[in-house]
């Protein structure tokens, strides 16, 4: 009893700041709650989720003239207007209100994938892309650095400190700095590339360009946290007994063989940890987007968390933001369960 009383304050804090918001988000995602609204809150069932996740496909045949020939416009076939199908068309009720997400030409036909919420879909795909690229690259890079700074050399601590420095600096500051680095006029990156190519390189507005903005953000994110994961790898490396390396050396193992047979198996648990931590962090992508691009240009750097915040506070749609949070939670939960299953200890 006394024990519970002692733990009371911290349990209360835990309840107020972690557990309560969690259930609140769950609850609100089934309502039409707005940040400030004169109307009473109503239960709306799955509607928030439907309007986020609704997708449909539509295949349109090209328009033909009376004689059956294709009607060409600038040499390309023409198609009926999409709006005709997605705006109050009684024959296509399931497509009502959707917009084009992706489309491509299939033979003569045009295939459309439509989504109720195209911006959310962009955010979803971007977030997954971000995780899929950042997790392996950042993990591998951090391991490489850890192996390098794990050597017994004079001054090696200086290198460890240098690689760790970006981690200590707040992401907001780092993101601001990289806005200067990526600047389209005389940013550091453009200047450097121009210098390396003797002026042959044409400056690029890295963050203002749909084709480079997301990649630039990925590169900067990998750079920022790589030192953190390097330290985790390093601590894992240092748990491997020196004698194992010596035994392998006596047996004549090459560096690569030593890595494969001694180092990597010894890093199993560390690898699981690093993988899960990077995945979690990557799914939480927000600060970079908020500081560097606000999701643009043309939604090319949207992310789930940014969308959740954007809706909840920017558009005062608390219910919509909650629904995104709940979805993110379910995604992260299932991915951790899958990762745990895949990396389980086999006996």
């Amino acid at each position: 009893m006394a024990g519970w009383l002692m733990a009371g304050p911290s349990l209360a804090i835990l309840a107020i700041f972690l557990i309560l918001p969690f259930f609140l988000a769950f609850g609100l995602s089934f309502t039409n709650q707005r940040l400030i609204s004169p109307n009473p809150t109503e239960y709306v069932g799955m509607r928030n989720f439907e309007s986020l996740l609704g997708v449909g496909t539509l295949t349109l045949e090209p328009l033909r003239g009376e004689n059956g020939d294709l009607i060409l416009e600038d040499g390309a076939p023409t198609y009926p207007r999409l709006r005709g199908y997605t705006r109050n068309n009684p024959d296509y009720p399931h497509l009502n209100g959707m917009r084009e997400w992706i489309s491509w030409t299939w033979g003569e036909n045009r295939v459309y994938v439509l989504a109720s919420d195209v911006v959310f879909m962009r955010a979803l795909v971007n977030t997954f892309m971000f995780v899929l690229i950042v997790a392996p690259l950042q993990g591998a890079l951090a391991l490489g650095l850890a192996l390098l700074v794990n050597q017994k050399l004079k001054g090696i601590n200086a290198f460890r400190a240098i690689f760790f420095m970006p981690v200590v600096v707040s992401m907001v500051v780092v993101a601001l700095l990289w806005r200067f680095i990526y600047d389209g006029q005389n940013g550091l990156l453009n200047t450097l590339l121009a210098f390396l190519t003797f002026g042959g390189f044409k400056p690029v507005d890295w963050l203002g360009n749909t084709s480079t903005a997301f990649g630039a953000m990925i590169a900067m994110s990998i750079w920022q946290a790589v030192g953190f994961h390097m330290v985790i790898w390093l601590s894992g490396l240092q748990t491997i007994p020196e004698h194992l390396y010596e035994a392998a050396r006596i047996e004549g193992a090459s560096r690569w063989q030593t890595f494969v047979h001694v180092t990597w198996p010894g890093l199993r648990n560390t690898a699981v940890l690093v993988l899960i931590v990077i995945t979690m962090q990557a799914f939480a992508l927000f600060t970079q987007v908020d500081v560097m691009t606000n999701g643009g240009p043309i939604d090319s750097t949207q992310s789930l968390v940014y969308q959740a915040v954007q809706r909840g506070y920017g558009q005062q749609d608390i219910a919509g933001g909650s629904a995104i949070s709940v979805l993110l939670f379910l995604i992260v939960l299932s991915i951790s369960l899958i990762q745990r299953y895949l990396t389980r200890e086999r006996t």
Binding site: E246, A247, I250
Partner: peptide
């Protein structure tokens, strides 16, 4: 040469 270590130095996962 071959060496036997005090800590055995066996590869734990093999």
């Amino acid at each position: 040469i071959a060496m036997v270590f005090q800590s055995y130095a066996l590869y734990p996962h093999k």
